[in-house]
């Protein structure tokens, strides 16, 4: 009995000494591929064009729009207040202030969804947070905000949405403005949004 106790105490202290002299193992900042896929599939990573319009109109101070198209395309047409970071420059040091921060909600947009989604994938892989994608991109922006059509169902939700879009159209000067958008360059992928249950963490003593 005594031997066993002494042995246990010695092992414990030896382990303690070992741990005291070894540093903490910190895994690489990259996230696992399966986690990445899960993150990208999450619905909350997307901003609808209506949400972007609403936050632009209400001048939401946390909204940071990032145009990931080329500089040329950006100069032809861009959303108000957006900045231009072409996709290939997304990890440049000069871009870090926008994609690697914890204050603003950075929303990427391109002509369709694809390029913005690539940008999101790259920064998510780096472990950066607070980055989103405007779903449907500028194609959907033109279709729904600048040239809104009534969706047919005369229920309150559809009606409200339509009225909001009409207001937004007036605000953003739609109708007369004909932005140059190369629709063929960015096909709109149809994605199935997978909703995940929220993780609940709990603990306690017996």
């Amino acid at each position: 009995m005594r031997v066993r106790k002494t042995l246990s105490a010695t092992v414990l202290i030896a382990t303690g000494v070992f741990l005291a002299f070894t540093g903490l193992y910190v895994p690489k900042e990259e996230i696992a591929p399966e986690d990445l896929v899960r993150t990208l599939e999450r619905n909350e990573n997307y901003y609808s064009v209506d949400k972007v319009a609403e936050q632009l109109i209400s001048k939401d101070p946390l909204l940071q729009l990032v145009d990931v198209r080329s500089e040329e395309e950006y100069n032809k047409f861009s959303l108000p207040g957006s900045i231009n970071i072409p996709l290939e420059k997304i990890l440049d040091v000069s871009s870090q202030d926008y994609v690697y921060q914890e204050i603003y909600n950075t929303v990427f947009y391109s002509n369709g969804t694809t390029d913005a989604l690539v940008a999101l994938m790259v920064v998510t892989r780096k472990g950066y947070k607070n980055n989103y994608v405007m779903k449907g991109g500028l194609n959907e922006w033109v279709e729904k905000i600048l040239r809104p059509k009534h969706e047919g169902n005369f229920d309150i939700t559809t009606e409200e949405l339509y009225q909001f879009r009409k207001g937004a159209q007036a605000y953003f000067g739609g109708g007369s403005a004909t932005p140059v958008v190369d629709a063929s360059a960015a096909p709109k992928p149809k994605r199935k949004a997978v909703k995940r249950k929220k993780k609940a963490v709990s603990g306690g003593c017996g």
Partner: peptide, 18 residues
Amino acid sequence: VSYGVSVLIFSIIAIATF
């Protein structure tokens, strides 16, 4: 102190208490 050192201290306190 670091995690490791605190665990060592805690282990010594535990053994002394036992």
